[in-house]
Deep mutational scan, measured.
Amino acid sequence: EPLWIRPDAPSRCTWQLGRPASESPHHHTAPAKSPKILPDILKKIGDTPMVRINKIGKKFGLKCELLAKCEFFNAGGSVKDRISLRMIEDAERDGTLKPGDTIIEPTSGNTGIGLALAAAVRGYRCIIVMPEKMSSEKVDVLRALGAEIVRTPTNARFDSPESHVGVAWRLKNEIPNSHILDQYRNASNPLAHYDTTADEILQQCDGKLDMLVASVGTGGTITGIARKLKEKCPGCRIIGVDPEGSILAEPEELNQTEQTTYEVEGIGYDFIPTVLDRTVVDKWFKSNDEEAFTFARMLIAQEGLLCGGSAGSTVAVAVKAAQELQEGQRCVVILPDSVRNYMTKFLSDRWMLQKGFLKEEDLTEKKPWWWHLRVQELGLSAPLTVLPTITCGHTIEILREKGFDQAPVVDEAGVILGMVTLGNMLSSLLAGKVQPSDQVGKVIYKQFKQIRLTDTLGRLSHILEMDHFALVVHEQIQYHSTGKSSQRQMVFGVVTAIDLLNFVAAQERDQK
């Protein structure tokens, strides 16, 4: 057995438009009618409502009807409940999964919650491996369901041993009777949507819809739904939504950006999952974080739909894509998950301010006199920076000697690579993860907040409520011999709460 199987392995699926269902090699399930009293909570997966979006479509000038398939009504709160249950049931049916076995899954959280929910009911041990950027709410729900959680670096490539995929496979090879159901490759993922989600949409719309818009992560949702719609409703256009920084969209030119990270969760990847059939997507749109969270908040405030950030991405694209539809036509959007997962993220004004998705003037509360002053007023001194090749031991000596707790790590040209902190280095040394002679590049981390000289002290204040420091950066445009230009970030300084307090105190003292 291989040590790991690539999540982007070539698909062996034989589905073709027009091929009889009787030739399918898979076990198919028909939607079942729910009894009045459910035998367990797993029976509350599927049969989610279709809700008309009344205000947002009109606000953006849509002539067509805009409908939302509300997947956050599933038992675990997301569309991923469907595939989690289906993968477990299919693994039980073919004898792969037996009582007492362990389920391991690399996930952005929602599939993990679905699997942990099913594992709690069915009696399996469950280990979820997820990147650090995923919300604390997801972690809390997983723990409450009895799952064990392993976190991995957000910026690790999918084929790196440190990625959530790599760590999951390492655990599988170490733990007896453990299984990775593997949402990236498992046919049960798109089949769950082909058999149930798509049929529900067709039934709820009486077979009449002209466009379907869905955000894409593993691709199982859009693949399964689109294949069924292509068979039953061939005139329906399928629109895929991919965040900026991901590479799922086609044509490839759409993916060209210097951005590699994004805040919206559960969609987009740096590889093409095996289950994603991009041939059934008629057109791709890219979405960005700001519009995703703005539209998610709009869905909550104006439509009462308590959905997550990827739902915002989907609707932001839908109001663009559906401009081509006329009166009497219908566009369906998939709202994948609930706001429950993001209470401390985009639902929080403070978080939105820190990330730059909300401006101070958007909030009406009274601010102190210094709130709208610029960061450049602080008069920061030149920063202490270190090269990635310097040793951890030497870096600790320098920081202690100069009285700093942290320093930016830059390359020879001064471009920011990340940050090192005294606390992080000492804990890594004590844990045996690094040696004093190791290069400081081994303990770089990139989960820090950046701020510009033109940003306000109010925004800085919000950042420092949650973080010990902020890195002050400025952009530099560099022209190359080819005539092309590129933008790079340079370090201007490091600012802490002490710097802000000293500035405010000094100004008030001078005024007296």
Results as ranks from 00 to 15, higher is better:
residue 238 I to H: 01
residue 238 I to Y: 06
residue 239 I to N: 01
residue 240 G to P: 00
residue 241 V to I: 07
residue 241 V to P: 03
residue 243 P to C: 02
residue 243 P to D: 06
residue 244 E to P: 10
residue 244 E to V: 11
residue 244 E to K: 09
residue 245 G to L: 03
residue 245 G to N: 04
residue 246 S to T: 04
residue 246 S to K: 03
residue 247 I to K: 09
residue 248 L to S: 00
residue 249 A to S: 03
residue 249 A to E: 05
residue 249 A to F: 05
residue 250 E to M: 08
residue 250 E to G: 08
residue 251 P to M: 05
residue 253 E to N: 13
residue 253 E to T: 09
residue 254 L to R: 08
residue 254 L to Q: 06
residue 254 L to E: 03
residue 255 N to E: 05
residue 255 N to A: 03
residue 255 N to M: 00
residue 256 Q to P: 07
residue 256 Q to S: 14
residue 257 T to P: 05
residue 257 T to E: 03
residue 258 E to R: 11
residue 258 E to V: 11
residue 259 Q to V: 11
residue 260 T to K: 11
residue 260 T to F: 15
residue 260 T to I: 15
residue 261 T to K: 12
residue 261 T to Y: 13
residue 263 E to W: 07
residue 264 V to E: 01
residue 265 E to F: 00
residue 265 E to G: 01
residue 265 E to C: 00
residue 265 E to M: 00
residue 265 E to K: 04
residue 265 E to V: 00
residue 266 G to A: 02
residue 267 I to L: 03
residue 267 I to M: 06
residue 267 I to K: 02
residue 269 Y to D: 02
residue 269 Y to L: 02
residue 269 Y to K: 04
residue 270 D to L: 01
residue 270 D to G: 05
residue 270 D to F: 00
residue 271 F to C: 00
residue 271 F to K: 00
residue 274 T to V: 02
residue 274 T to W: 00
residue 274 T to Y: 00
residue 277 D to G: 04
residue 277 D to K: 02
residue 278 R to A: 01
residue 279 T to W: 15
residue 280 V to A: 15
residue 281 V to M: 14
residue 282 D to K: 14
residue 282 D to Y: 11
residue 283 K to G: 05
residue 283 K to Q: 14
residue 284 W to E: 00
residue 284 W to V: 01
residue 285 F to Q: 05
residue 285 F to R: 07
residue 286 K to M: 00
residue 286 K to Q: 06
residue 286 K to W: 00
residue 288 N to E: 13
residue 290 E to K: 13
residue 290 E to H: 10
residue 291 E to H: 05
residue 292 A to H: 03
residue 292 A to R: 06
residue 293 F to M: 03
residue 294 T to W: 11
residue 294 T to G: 12
residue 295 F to K: 12
residue 295 F to V: 15
residue 296 A to H: 01
residue 297 R to N: 01
residue 297 R to C: 00
residue 297 R to P: 01
residue 298 M to N: 10
residue 298 M to I: 14
residue 299 L to A: 04
residue 301 A to P: 04
residue 302 Q to C: 14
residue 303 E to L: 05
residue 303 E to Y: 02
residue 303 E to R: 02
residue 303 E to K: 04
residue 303 E to D: 06
residue 304 G to Y: 00
residue 304 G to S: 00
residue 305 L to M: 12
residue 305 L to K: 02
residue 306 L to H: 01
residue 307 C to I: 07
residue 307 C to D: 02
residue 308 G to I: 00
residue 311 A to H: 06
residue 312 G to F: 00
residue 312 G to M: 01
residue 312 G to E: 00
residue 313 S to G: 08
residue 313 S to C: 09
residue 313 S to H: 03
residue 313 S to W: 02
residue 314 T to E: 03
residue 315 V to Y: 05
residue 316 A to D: 09
residue 317 V to T: 09
residue 318 A to W: 01
residue 319 V to N: 04
residue 320 K to Y: 15
residue 321 A to W: 03
residue 323 Q to I: 07
residue 324 E to S: 10
residue 326 Q to L: 03
residue 327 E to N: 04
residue 327 E to W: 03
residue 328 G to P: 09
residue 328 G to I: 08
residue 329 Q to A: 15
residue 329 Q to W: 04
residue 330 R to I: 09
residue 330 R to P: 08
residue 330 R to G: 03
residue 330 R to D: 09
residue 331 C to L: 11
residue 331 C to Q: 05
residue 332 V to D: 00
residue 332 V to Q: 01
residue 333 V to R: 06
residue 334 I to G: 00
residue 334 I to T: 11
residue 334 I to F: 15
residue 335 L to Q: 00
residue 335 L to P: 00
residue 335 L to G: 01
residue 335 L to W: 00
residue 335 L to D: 02
residue 336 P to V: 04
residue 336 P to D: 04
residue 337 D to R: 01
residue 337 D to Y: 00
residue 338 S to T: 10
residue 338 S to D: 08
residue 338 S to A: 11
residue 340 R to M: 05
residue 340 R to F: 02
residue 341 N to V: 01
residue 342 Y to D: 04
residue 343 M to C: 03
residue 344 T to G: 12
residue 344 T to D: 04
residue 345 K to Q: 06
residue 345 K to H: 04
residue 346 F to N: 04
residue 346 F to M: 06
residue 347 L to A: 07
residue 347 L to T: 02
residue 348 S to F: 06
residue 348 S to L: 07
residue 349 D to Q: 08
residue 351 W to M: 01
residue 352 M to R: 04
residue 352 M to T: 06
residue 353 L to M: 15
residue 354 Q to C: 04
residue 355 K to E: 10
residue 356 G to F: 02
residue 358 L to Y: 07
residue 359 K to T: 15
residue 359 K to R: 14
residue 359 K to M: 13
residue 361 E to W: 14
residue 362 D to E: 13
residue 362 D to G: 12
residue 363 L to D: 10
residue 364 T to C: 08
residue 365 E to R: 15
residue 365 E to F: 10
residue 366 K to T: 13
residue 366 K to M: 13
residue 368 P to D: 10
residue 368 P to V: 10
residue 369 W to C: 08
residue 370 W to P: 01
residue 370 W to N: 01
residue 370 W to I: 01
residue 370 W to C: 15
residue 371 W to N: 09
residue 372 H to C: 15
residue 372 H to E: 13
residue 372 H to L: 15
residue 373 L to Q: 04
residue 373 L to P: 14
residue 375 V to I: 14
residue 375 V to N: 12
residue 376 Q to I: 07
residue 376 Q to V: 06
residue 378 L to Y: 05
residue 379 G to I: 12
residue 379 G to W: 12
residue 380 L to P: 13
residue 382 A to S: 11
residue 382 A to L: 14
residue 383 P to Y: 08
residue 384 L to N: 14
residue 384 L to M: 12
residue 385 T to A: 13
residue 385 T to D: 06
residue 385 T to L: 11
residue 385 T to S: 10
residue 385 T to G: 11
residue 386 V to Y: 12
residue 386 V to A: 13
residue 386 V to G: 07
residue 386 V to S: 09
residue 387 L to G: 12
residue 387 L to T: 14
residue 388 P to V: 13
residue 388 P to Q: 13
residue 388 P to H: 09
residue 390 I to R: 03
residue 392 C to Y: 15
residue 392 C to S: 09
residue 392 C to N: 06
residue 393 G to L: 14
residue 393 G to K: 13
residue 394 H to R: 08
residue 394 H to F: 14
residue 396 I to D: 09
residue 396 I to R: 04
residue 397 E to G: 10
residue 398 I to C: 03
residue 399 L to A: 13
residue 399 L to S: 03
residue 400 R to S: 08
residue 401 E to G: 13
residue 402 K to I: 11
residue 404 F to C: 06
residue 404 F to V: 09
residue 404 F to P: 02
residue 404 F to I: 13
residue 404 F to R: 03
residue 406 Q to G: 14
residue 407 A to H: 05
residue 407 A to C: 14
residue 408 P to M: 00
residue 410 V to M: 15
residue 411 D to K: 13
residue 411 D to T: 15
residue 412 E to C: 15
residue 412 E to T: 13
residue 412 E to D: 14
residue 413 A to P: 11
residue 413 A to Y: 13
residue 413 A to H: 03
residue 414 G to V: 13
residue 415 V to Y: 15
residue 416 I to W: 01
residue 416 I to N: 07
residue 416 I to S: 14
residue 417 L to E: 09
residue 417 L to Y: 12
residue 418 G to K: 07
residue 419 M to L: 15
residue 419 M to A: 15
residue 419 M to S: 14
residue 420 V to H: 05
residue 420 V to R: 00
residue 421 T to F: 03
residue 423 G to K: 09
residue 427 S to P: 09
residue 427 S to R: 10
residue 429 L to D: 12
residue 431 A to C: 07
residue 431 A to H: 04
residue 432 G to Y: 04
residue 432 G to M: 05
residue 432 G to T: 05
residue 433 K to W: 03
residue 434 V to Y: 11
residue 434 V to F: 15
residue 435 Q to V: 14
residue 435 Q to M: 15
residue 436 P to Q: 13
residue 436 P to A: 12
residue 437 S to C: 14
residue 437 S to R: 14
residue 438 D to M: 15
residue 438 D to N: 14
residue 438 D to E: 15
residue 442 K to Q: 15
residue 443 V to P: 10
residue 443 V to L: 07
residue 443 V to E: 13
residue 444 I to P: 13
residue 444 I to D: 12
residue 445 Y to K: 08
residue 446 K to P: 09
residue 447 Q to S: 10
residue 448 F to H: 10
residue 449 K to R: 13
residue 449 K to H: 03
residue 449 K to T: 03
residue 450 Q to W: 15
residue 450 Q to M: 13
residue 451 I to V: 14
residue 452 R to A: 12
residue 453 L to Q: 12
residue 454 T to E: 10
residue 454 T to M: 15
residue 455 D to V: 13
residue 455 D to W: 10
residue 455 D to K: 06
residue 456 T to G: 14
residue 456 T to P: 12
residue 456 T to C: 12
residue 457 L to P: 03
residue 457 L to R: 00
residue 459 R to P: 12
residue 460 L to H: 01
residue 460 L to E: 01
residue 461 S to W: 09
residue 462 H to F: 13
residue 462 H to A: 14
residue 465 E to M: 03
residue 466 M to D: 12
residue 469 F to H: 09
residue 469 F to Y: 15
residue 472 V to P: 06
residue 473 V to G: 13
residue 474 H to I: 07
residue 475 E to K: 13
residue 476 Q to H: 14
residue 477 I to D: 08
residue 479 Y to A: 15
residue 479 Y to I: 13
residue 479 Y to S: 15
residue 479 Y to D: 05
residue 480 H to S: 11
residue 482 T to E: 04
residue 482 T to F: 15
residue 483 G to R: 15
residue 483 G to D: 15
residue 484 K to P: 14
residue 486 S to Y: 13
residue 487 Q to F: 15
residue 487 Q to V: 13
residue 487 Q to K: 15
residue 488 R to W: 14
residue 489 Q to D: 11
residue 490 M to E: 12
residue 490 M to D: 13
residue 490 M to N: 12
residue 492 F to R: 15
residue 492 F to K: 12
residue 492 F to V: 15
residue 493 G to E: 11
residue 494 V to M: 14
residue 495 V to E: 05
residue 496 T to N: 12
residue 496 T to M: 08
residue 496 T to P: 08
residue 497 A to W: 11
residue 497 A to S: 13
residue 499 D to K: 06
residue 500 L to S: 08
residue 500 L to P: 15
residue 501 L to E: 02
residue 504 V to P: 04
residue 504 V to H: 11
residue 505 A to W: 02
residue 505 A to Q: 09
residue 506 A to V: 04
residue 508 E to G: 14
residue 508 E to H: 11
residue 508 E to F: 15
residue 508 E to S: 10
residue 510 D to T: 10
residue 510 D to G: 11
residue 511 Q to Y: 11
residue 511 Q to F: 11
